[in-house]
Design a protein around this nucleic acid. Structure first.
Lengths: 383, 383
DNA sequence: ACTAGATTGTCAACCGGTTGCCAAAAATTG
DNA sequence: CAATTTTTGGCAACCGGTTGACAATCTAGT
């Protein structure tokens, strides 16, 4: 119903605008008589519920109810009001609504780095789900800094109904503190007591390791990500476990930073390790590593197999295209948004739920899978 | 251990909206002693200016002035109020402020496709500039549809102080209509009467074409983008002009869509054209084209040179890495944001500016440059 | 027809700042 | 020291919705 109001007048809006179109044509005649604010409320002082009330001949509060409490007013009054609203091209003033209710129909998403392709699909997933449910997404970037992240989060808390933290850098306690204030959902990390969306790395990793084992590899290196990364730890655990299961040897190497450049830098360690297959914390590292190895004359995958993580945009641009353990990032984003919206609606319906009594925070696990491309394969005998 | 892992359920059920279920459960008996709203204002009922006023012993309006009108109150009252505010950990309620003033310290950015890497840097540039000036960025996606774009724009207009449209799909009149309502800045397109930020393609293109000419190429193909794309038209014009100047032959080819896939599809036309060098509307096309040509055994750049546009993320992942005409996308984003903020502040300072009398809408042109990588170079004699 | 009960609409008090107007207080001047 | 100007703080009316309490109206039951 409400939506109908917002979207139906799409075409009604045309008359609304073309009145103004004629305006500029006017200067021909006389000098602009009255000074006109450029972006003002002069032409169309956005209709209010009071205007509607006047047109429909009812009380403003009745208008308010007709527009937000379905069934609270009689069918005919409802129609009367809706017609008036349509006629006046009414749209609610979100601020006026937010003031007394605290609800803003908005939620925040904080990512570590807007230009990191890992987040693209997360952002899109969240945005799509939000929009579909008539929520607005506000985006902020933490520039990979825990402090900036916390600041951004605090700032947002004031204006949003809930918050999604994608791969947060701040520590668990801060996250829980935020979650105490408003619903928070975390992506790519588990935080006790806070709803999370995490890719379950095990399936993807075991597929990858099994594939490597089947191709004759015996020693696998894992290039780790940032020390404080929860995900990096999980991936290393997964690799260890899978290697154990497949009776492969696993060694861990450190990277300076989880970027293409970091991948280049770790190349010498990789070669020194003697491993014939490498899994890297993310695709960026894998790509840099592959570039550097190839530049040194190493043939991929004949001499060394490379497997990344995430399946980011561009992972298939390389030669050979990158084999990678895909996380359904878009799903993470939309899943987080959906989770958040559920929390919001729950709060709405019976907000006086005892704090401790609630069921444990939901954890949404999404599956990972191996995407087999050209950068991994059978090891060729040296020669 | 490993075994257990394999059985981890794909999705842990997301607790669903079961308000109706829990409610009846309550008759159970003694209600939980202290019913506590989960996300409530109980702990810290966000301090208001009234609280501050009480603490500081002044009138709320004085607090308001102290906090927003610098110099309007005496130094000692100021200090008194600031201390009280700090003590109470006060932060303004943005909605309460927006309601009477209409100012929201927020602006919107609408992009055609959040997952299109072209926009990544634009988004970041805008976000960074916005945040630096204490504005918040709200993001929306038009999913490449003019109608969705317009809807999103209209929806946003209600809650933002201004709007940035990146490569908008809607037509000029609609953009101007929006611009009449609130400040609007357009990226990647020129719209009469609306401030724009556009990369000036000429420098980059002439560098590219000169480089091709110097490498012995004589016939250049341009793979165009969407017919309605303003930018595509500019680029084709630029290519034509530069080719004329360098006395090269230029032919235009059409693409089905400006994506990697579109690039693959256009490969046969490219080969049929007889051109030895190709410029494509964007990098995605270039990458797809290169993949397809290479798959068919064509050696790049020995047999054909490929030059893209934009220098998107991943353009250097290819083998050979892609030569491309770089648009400073980040600059576009931050430039647009800066332009918008200027407009906002101008409106603020003397809002009663006559509509027609203002100087013509600003056009910010940013420079493009050739990024020479491996996909273009000297033509080798067939062999 | 008369009343209990359910619907539906109205009144008025918020939500938390902002701002025009005015008077008290302080500073400047004659 | 009085008269005048400038500061500074207070009062109150908004901004545009929401919502609890209550009254009016309508429906149904006997």
């Amino acid at each position: 119903m409400r939506d109908g109001l917002a979207t139906v007048p799409l075409f009604v809006a045309v008359p609304h605008y073309d009145g103004a179109v004629t305006e500029p044509k006017e200067p021909e005649g006389a000098a602009p008589a009255g000074p006109v604010k450029k972006h003002a409320r002069d032409g169309k002082p956005n209709a209010t519920i009071y205007d509607i009330a006047k047109v429909a001949g009812v009380n403003p509060s009745t208008v308010s109810r007709a527009l937000s409490k379905p069934g609270r007013v009689s069918a005919k009054t409802q129609k009367l009001i809706e017609d008036a609203a349509a006629e006046l091209n009414y749209q609610v003033n979100p601020f006026a609504r937010a003031l007394p209710t605290g609800r803003t129909s908005t939620f925040g998403l904080i990512v570590a780095d807007i230009t990191n392709p890992t987040f693209f699909d997360i952002i899109r997933g969240a945005e799509t789900t939000a929009t579909a449910r008539d929520y607005t997404l506000v985006l902020a970037e933490s520039a990979e800094s825990a402090a900036t992240e916390l600041t951004a989060a605090r700032r947002m808390m004031a204006t949003v109904d809930g918050l999604i933290l994608a791969s947060p850098r701040m520590d668990d306690d801060n996250i829980r503190a935020l979650a105490r204030d408003k619903p928070v959902v975390v992506i790519n990390r588990e935080v006790d007591g806070v709803p999370c969306v995490v890719p379950d790395v095990n399936k993807g990793i075991s597929e990858a390791v099994r594939s490597l084992a089947a191709n004759g590899h015996q020693k696998v290196a894992f290039v780790a990500g940032p020390p404080q990364s929860w995900m990096s730890a999980r991936r290393w655990e997964g690799v260890q476990a899978a290697c154990e299961w497949s009776r492969l040897e696993a060694v861990r190497l450190e990277s300076s930073k989880p970027t293409v450049d970091g991948g280049r830098q770790v190349a010498r360690d990789v070669r020194a390790s003697g491993a014939t297959a490498v899994l890297t914390y993310n695709d960026l590292l894998a790509i840099g590593l592959m570039q550097e190895l190839q530049a040194a004359g190493v043939v991929v995958p004949d001499q060394i197999s490379i497997v990344g993580f995430d399946d980011i945009f561009g992972a298939d641009f390389t030669t050979p295209p990158l084999t990678t353990v895909r996380s359904p990032l878009g799903e993470c984003g939309s899943g987080a948004a959906a989770l958040l919206l559920d929390l919001l609606h729950r709060d709405l319906s019976h907000g006086d739920l005892p704090l401790g009594a609630g069921e444990p925070a939901a954890i949404l696990r999404v599956e990972t899978e191996l995407v087999l491309r050209g950068s991994s394969g059978r090891l060729l005998p040296a020669g």
